[in-house]
């Protein structure tokens, strides 16, 4: 079991990993080469670079620095986080890893697609957690909105429950093959009967009768994990205390995911705070 698993290889995640590693913790980082930082051509306002630095270069430097300090890094997408009380399970598409604490620093990926009806029917046929709500869709027709490993992993959680599963990519191409039926048409709207989801209407005028829709767009991000773990969010922003700890003890959130100032300086600072808080937490449960 790891002392700390960090999800995200940007400045927040790597800073958390480095601070925890330097406190002798056993640390694993998952990164996917998806970071806001990679889109920055040049960063001029970060301390210590005479001529500024390219975002991609800074990101790669962070990965290299953590590696050199003995942090274990895996280039894999995390699809789910479960557990609690100092024993968390972090799942990727192919494996499971255990940790006493988790830092989530996946950036501020949007979890809701811009589709008409998505808010209206939340909890009335639209769900963000297959494990939680699959129970209510026994022998029913289900769709998963998404186009990658995360969507497939949610579909896998539902396949023993639902009578039929269709993955709706909403105009995107699948990034991963699977045995599921895939419909690529762009979605016009989600419609219902009596306030409950009953069909999806596509831009090409086709329709799909459906009992439930699970949302799992792109790669799984912090907001998705929050919905599954019960991390408190307000207006889509995860709530943390001054130590970057969430309401789930042992889970910390930092960087763009924590909202506020979207800057490398702030991400690195919050990562350091989260990393040290995780160390304190792990020690406190060890000596209990």
């Amino acid at each position: 079991m790891y002392d700390l698993i960090v999800i995200g290889g940007g400045p927040a995640g790597i800073s958390a990993a480095i601070y925890a590693k330097r406190a002798n913790m056993n640390v694993l980082v998952f990164y996917t080469m998806e970071s806001q930082l990679l889109k920055a051509h040049k960063i001029d306002n970060y301390y210590g670079f005479v001529n500024g630095i390219n975002g991609q270069e800074l990101y790669n430097n962070g990965i290299g620095q953590a590696t050199n300090l003995g942090v274990h890094l895996l280039n894999e997408e995390v699809t789910d986080v479960t557990g609690g009380d100092g024993e968390f399970v972090v799942k990727t598409f192919t494996n499971e890893y255990k940790a006493k604490s988790v830092v989530i620093a996946t950036g501020n990926k949007k979890i809701k697609p811009d589709i008409k009806g998505i808010d209206e029917y939340e909890g009335r046929g639209i769900s963000y957690c297959a494990i939680c709500d699959g129970f209510f869709y026994r022998n029913k027709k289900i769709a998963v909105i998404g186009n990658g490993r995360y969507a497939i992993s949610e579909a896998n959680d539902l396949k023993n429950v639902a009578s039929e599963i269709t993955i709706l990519t909403n105009g995107e191409n699948m990034t991963e093959d699977s045995d599921y039926i895939v419909k690529k048409s762009k979605i016009l709207q989600i419609a219902g009967d009596d306030g409950i989801v009953s069909k999806v209407i596509f831009e090409d005028n086709s329709e799909l009768a459906i009992d439930g829709i699970f949302v799992a767009i792109g790669q799984a991000g912090g907001g998705d994990f929050a919905k599954k773990l019960g991390i408190l969010m307000e207006n889509g922003i995860i709530q943390t205390d001054e130590n970057m700890e969430t309401n789930v003890k042992g889970i910390y959130v930092c960087g763009n995911l924590a909202g506020g100032f979207l800057q490398v300086n702030k991400a690195a600072y919050e990562g350091a705070v989260a990393g040290l808080a995780a160390v304190k937490y792990v020690k406190s449960i060890q000596y209990k």
Binding site: C129, F135, G230
Partner: peptide, 9 residues
């Protein structure tokens, strides 16, 4: 439900 993460919170 006992198996639901957010329910525990």
């Amino acid at each position: 439900a006992t198996w639901c993460g957010p329910c525990k919170m």
